[in-house]
Design a protein around this nucleic acid. Structure first.
Lengths: 168, 168
DNA sequence: CTAATTCCGAGTGCGTTAGTAGGATATAGA
DNA sequence: TCTATATCCTACTAACGCACTCGGAATTAG
């Protein structure tokens, strides 16, 4: 129940790839698609929306490609997901940003509080993460411990907990 | 994005109707459907699952119908929604109760923490509400204020906030 | 006996999802 | 200038899931 579509998944993974590549010039769709093993033509569709939303910049022609418009720490996951999947809306009558009454029962329908709660907690979950939280910090890729090389994901997870407030 | 289907909506509204009727004997599907303005034949499908899950009891034949198997305060919204819509799973690779690896990227895919966060916060939102929180308390229906009769929904909303801890 | 019910499985139309296909435009490097 | 590599844009489509409906069997109160 209550599942994201592949738009959100693929799109977020694409953004993560761009975040890892941030600062190193534009990255082409072909590269991204190969890194993430995703259909390039489909990603093209998704990246169009991200560009229009001002989350990525593009460069035409040979050696062109895409790059994040802002540093990873200044792009929240919520922002990305809203562009890819639209407003958070566990039920039509509880859509983010919509004030219109769509159902004549809405005013007295107590089920509404359920959808609103879910909506707000999903929003909270997504808005409290930035792209930077999702990618392994640069340093960690060369850090070693006494017994073994640290694997990237082991470092990344705690980082998502101990993050500071976003100031976008 | 991330929307519940009508199964969840209709099913929950049906349960709410049963909760309001709790203690007054079985209620037939025809009645429920009329109260909530929902297609009876579709509700039939949904109530089947709720019965198998032990959330409602049924009585065959004339003057038969359905009733909650437990008092409203002892049925959480999460329990109801999981029966109607399946396990909470914003993404296949982050399904409640599933430990199986479905994607070879799962172990190192940092997008996973996003889906898990969303999953857990949805679960929290649903599990912290009981059916009793969704229906206006009995007393309120006869309470009057100095200027006017209190309407039921006005009483119901604050009640959902000031609830005590569930002990299921 | 009859009317009102639950119970069960199969079937169906429609909208959304997850893509593909094709072509126009822009740019770096030879 | 030419070519290869890109973005950009719109249209198309196959498959799937959702939201139901339908028909009929079994059960029970009056």
């Amino acid at each position: 129940m209550i599942r994201f579509s592949t738009r959100g998944e693929y799109g977020l993974r694409m953004m993560m790839d761009l975040a890892r590549h941030y600062g190193a010039g534009p990255e082409s769709l072909t590269e991204i698609a190969r890194h993430e093993a995703l259909p390039p033509a489909y990603l093209e569709q998704l990246v169009g929306g991200l560009r229009k939303a001002g989350l990525v910049n593009s460069r035409h022609g040979a050696h062109g490609g895409y790059e994040l418009a802002r540093p990873p720490a200044q792009i929240s996951v919520g922002e990305v997901m809203r562009v890819l999947e639209g407003p958070i809306s566990p039920m039509v009558c509880a859509t983010e940003g919509e004030s219109e009454i769509l159902c004549e029962r809405q005013t007295f329908c107590s089920a509404n509080v359920v959808w609103e709660r879910v909506r707000d907690s999903v929003a909270q979950a997504l808005d409290s993460l930035t792209m930077a939280d999702l990618i392994p910090p640069r340093e960690s890729q060369i850090i070693r411990r006494d017994h073994d090389t640290i694997n990237v994901q082991a470092v990344a997870s705690p980082a998502t907990e101990g993050r500071k407030a976003t100031r976008v």
